[in-house]
Structure formats: structure tokens, C-alpha cells
Design a protein around this nucleic acid. Structure first.
Length: 442
RNA sequence: GGAGGAGUGGCCGAGCGGCUGAAGGCGACGGUUUUGAAAACCGUUUGACGGGCAACUGUCACGGGGGUUCGAAUCCCUCCUCCUCCGCCA
């Protein structure tokens, strides 16, 4: 969410952001509703003032012990005069009340419309974000690691997994429909190993490990920017008005919502492993092979909540990107970092760097990590604030990035570390999590 | 799930139709005192939304929403949360 004052003063910037991000947002209507909202509010406030003052007058008229009453009697008024006065005021107030009623209803409607429109406003991208229509126009920043050249015909992760008996997609689909799977034996252990390795690394780097709810209230989804746009991507538990999160970013970022965080606690660095649920609505037919695009996975996520300072945000953005790169490097996987273009940016994101890891079966780099900074966008929706050095209340800045998401990361892990005999060499960094073993084999 | 009790400012806690955005205490912050500290004393200390260049100012908020009333923290309805007991389950 943006400051309405900013929107009023910079409607063109907001319009441009909407166009560049392919977000639909009726800025003119918003500005119009905002003007109406303020005029109705002012009118209503002045009627309320009348009502309150009149009410106080009646109170005085009814309280024979009040100074005002005694003075009125001294001035020669009779009890009857005063009673008549009270009755007259009450008549007036009935009239005021009658005028307030329709205004009240109107105000309620307008506020609702206004709030709904505000939720559609996109965060303008940073100037360093490349202009582009979709992910094909993301800009590669760097490549790290050598792409392995095989001296045998490499198998894809599905084949490897099947042969080793560690991935069972067929039965996963039997249980839960398309885009589901079962990890078995060493597959299940490897999944746990990458997650735990990633979590341990984050704890070492000063992030507080958390365990958080994955079924949350809808306002938490709205606060982090996933609702109302994107509502169709979430699994809803409508009977309970709850939604399953697609990432631990949601509960981690909202954890301190509605708080004024003591400034000396900032920056706050949280990480959490959680199960992630994604409906993948509208992705029918896309990435149907294997473990790439699935409805359920586990992810370790990192979140930073910091002071309202763009330079600081940028610094932390690099930090969380580095954390993720270090994880990919620890897994001995080649990857590239891309600067995500405007068309591929989310509504609230200021800038996003994706890490794409090499996946032989796709013969391309595939997205495994996504590092975003939001400035105040989420903090405003969540009422995530702190008091600055001048005691002024300010909105925090928020950032987040994947640390590792599995089983997607198992695609390159299995495919790039496979051997001619169909076995897998376990990367060094994971061996201590795999009982010291060097290989996965039949 | 059944029965009962409770939800007030950073915390504790009073108020139970108008004088209460809210006593009192604690905490925090500023000051006086002191060689320094403690103690004591004095003062400050909620947020949201709106108006104004600003100083400043208006409205709203006592778990959420709705209602009664000229007027609600106080009365009524409803929902939520927490506590106790019972049931059920891990």
C-alpha cells in the first residue's frame, strides 16, 4: 500500500507503475473517491461536533447542581425555562441525527470502496529495474559456477528418482491429484538435509529461527500483499475464513504487525522452514514434468524488517541475496542471478533478484530463489512501525528471500550430481545431514 | 462440543449512562538534588484518520461489529479471544 498523499501528488507515477507491472488499478477513480471521502468525513465531523455540544448542553440543563444551572437561575430563568431549553436542543439534535444517518451510510460505503481501491495500487519499481513485459525480459547480472558437461547420457530427476526409488510421482498423484509427489527413503532424507543445512546457515548468520502457522487469517494474506490480487493462487479454508500460505514470508512478516517495534530491535532478521501451498491456478499445462511446479513443498525463508531507509533496504537486499547464493554454492550448483523486469514484478515489490539454478533436464536455468524488497508496501498494510530518533512513528521496510525450497532444488542436486551408474554423489555440505554418506544408490 | 468467568492505555488496575481518552500505581523518558549512583521530588508519556506552510486543530477508538439513547467504556444483541470445570482427542 502507498501513502494516499503520494498517490494524490504523483498520479502519473502510479499509473506508470500499473502499466509497467501489468496491474489493473483505476487511479482516477481512487483520487475521485478519496476527495469524496474527505469531504464526507469533514461534513460528518462537523455534525458530530454539533451533536456532542448539544448533548453537553442537555446534560447541564438536567443537572440542577451544576454551576451553569445555578447561574441560570440567578440570571432569572425558571426551571421551566431551562427544561424548555433542553427540549428545544433535543429537537435540534434529532434533526442533526436525521441528517447524519444517510451521511453515515454513505461514508461507510465510500470508505469500503476507498480501502478496496487502495489495495490495488502497485508499488512503483526502483529506477534500476529493467523495463520488460515478462520473465523472458529479465536481465542477467552474472553467472556463477561451471555447467557440467556429461560424458554419458544424463538422466532427468524423474528417471533418477524412480530408479533409485526415492521419488514416486505416480502414487503422489493417486493420493492428491496432479502436481503431487511422494519422496521416499533417501529422497525424504535428502529433502530434510537441504532444508536443515539451509536453516543452520541462516542461524549462524544471526537470523532467529521460527516455527510459524501456515494456516492464517485472510487479513494476514492481505497485509503481506497476497490478497486480494492473487487470492485465486491460495488454498482457502472458507468455513474458517483462513488461507494456507504459499510461503513463510507471510507469517514471518506479519508476526510483528500492529506493533510499534522498539527501534533498538531493528533490524529484525527471521527465518523459518514451512510447508508452502500453491494452487498454481492458470498454470495448466505449464511445467508439468517432475518436481518443478508442484502444489506443496517445503521452504526455508528469510525475512528482514528494518528502518525506513532506502539505502539500508538495498544493503539488506544484497545480504539476503548473498545468503541464498552461498547456499546454492554450498550445494555445488551453477546458477545465475537475474534482475527481474517490471512485467515480472509483484504488485508490492520494488525490486527483485531471482537466482536461477542450472537444470539439465530443462536445458536452462530455472528459478529457485526470489529476493525482494518492498520498502513500506507491506509495512503499511500490516501497520508494522517503529519510532525514529525524533520519536516520530514510521513504517518499517521489509525484505525477503528464499533460502532453499525443496524439492525443486533437488532437481539440480540430483541431475548435476548423478553418476553414469545412476547413483548420486551427495554434495559435501549435505553429508553430515546424511549420516556421513557420500552417495545415494540403489 | 457443554457449563461458568473475563477482555480498559507499554504493563497492573479503577470506572459501570453525560463532568472519562479515561483515576491510581508500575515502567519509560526529561528535570531538580548528588562528587557519582540510588532514593526523593517535579514534569512528560496511546493510536488511527482528516484540516493547516506551520504553530496548531477536528473526529474516532476502552476485544471486533451492530443496536438503544440527545449522549455509551458503562445498557442490549452478536462475533472473537483468553481463563476455569466437564466431555472428546493426540
Amino acid at each position: 500500500m502507498l501513502d494516499i498523499k503520494f498517490i494524490r501528488d504523483n498520479p502519473d507515477a502510479v499509473r506508470k507503475a500499473a502499466t509497467d507491472k501489468h496491474v489493473s488499478c483505476d487511479v482516477d477513480r481512487l483520487i475521485e473517491v478519496d476527495a469524496k471521502r474527505r469531504s464526507v468525513q469533514q461534513e460528518l465531523e462537523s455534525l458530530r461536533t454539533q451533536s456532542r455540544e448539544g448533548g453537553q448542553q442537555i446534560a447541564l440543563c438536567r443537572n440542577k447542581k451544576s454551576d451553569w444551572y445555578k447561574r441560570a437561575i440567578e440570571d432569572g430563568k425558571t426551571d421551566e425555562n431551562i427544561k424548555a431549553e433542553a427540549d428545544r436542543v433535543q429537537q435540534e439534535l434529532n434533526d442533526v441525527k436525521a441528517r447524519m444517518k444517510p451521511l453515515d451510510e454513505q461514508s461507510r460505503e465510500i470508505e469500503e470502496t476507498f480501502a478496496a481501491l487502495m489495495l490495488t495500487v502497485p508499488q512503483p519499481p526502483a529506477p534500476e529495474v529493467p523495463l520488460g513485459k515478462d520473465d523472458t525480459q529479465n536481465v542477467e547480472l552474472r553467472r556463477v559456477g561451471e555447467i557440467r558437461q556429461f560424458d554419458f547420457e544424463p538422466r532427468d530427476h524423474v528417471t533418477l528418482g524412480q530408479e533409485l526409488g526415492i521419488i514416486d510421482i505416480e502414487r503422489g498423484v493417486k493420493l492428491a491429484g496432479s502436481r503431487n509427489y511422494v519422496l521416499k527413503g533417501d529422497g525424504a532424507l535428502l529433502h530434510q538435509a537441504v532444508l536443515r543445512m539451509a536453516l543452520d546457515l541462516m542461524v549462524q548468520r544471526g537470523f532467529t529461527p521460527m516455527h510459524v502457522p501456515v494456516l492464517v487469517r485472510e487479513n494476514v494474506m492481505t497485509g503481506t500483499g497476497y490478497f486480494p490480487t492473487g487470492r485465486d493462487q491460495a488454498y482457502l479454508c472458507e468455513r474458517d475464513e483462513m488461507a494456507l500460505v504459499g510461503t513463510a514470508e507471510v507469517p514471518l512478516t506479519a508476526y510483528r504487525s500492529d506493533e510499534i517495534i522498539p527501534a533498538d530491535e531493528l533490524p529484525i532478521k527471521y527465518c523459518a522452514q514451512s510447508t508452502c501451498f500453491r494452487r498454481e491456478a492458470g498454470a495448466a499445462g505449464k511445467d508439468t514434468a517432475g518436481l518443478y511446479r508442484i502444489h506443496l513443498f517445503d521452504k526455508v525463508e528469510q525475512v528482514i524488517i528494518c528502518r525506513n531507509d532506502e539505502e539500508l533496504s538495498k544493503r539488506f537486499h544484497q545480504e539476503i541475496l548473498q545468503n541464498a547464493e552461498d547456499v546454492v554454492q554450498a550445494l555445488e550448483l551453477p546458477y545465475r542471478v537475474v534482475n527481474v523486469c517490471t512485467g515480472d514484478l509483484g504488485q508490492g515489490q520494488v525490486q527483485k533478484f531471482d537466482i536461477e539454478t542450472w537444470m539439465p533436464s530443462r536445458n536452462s536455468y530455472g528459478e529457485t530463489h526470489s529476493a525482494s524488497r518492498f520498502y513500506e508496501f507491506q509495512a503499511r498494510r500490516l501497520m508494522l512501525r517503529y519510532r525514529d530518533d525524533n520519536k516520530k512513528i514510521r513504517y518499517c521496510h521489509t525484505l525477503n528471500n528464499t533460502v532453499i525450497a525443496s524439492p525443486r532444488i533437488l532437481i539440480p542436486v540430483l541431475e548435476l550430481h548423478q553418476n553414469a551408474d545412476g547413483s548420486i554423489t551427495i554434495p559435501m555440505a549435505l553429508r553430515s545431514y546424511m549420516d556421513g554418506r557420500e552417495r545415494i544408490e540403489k
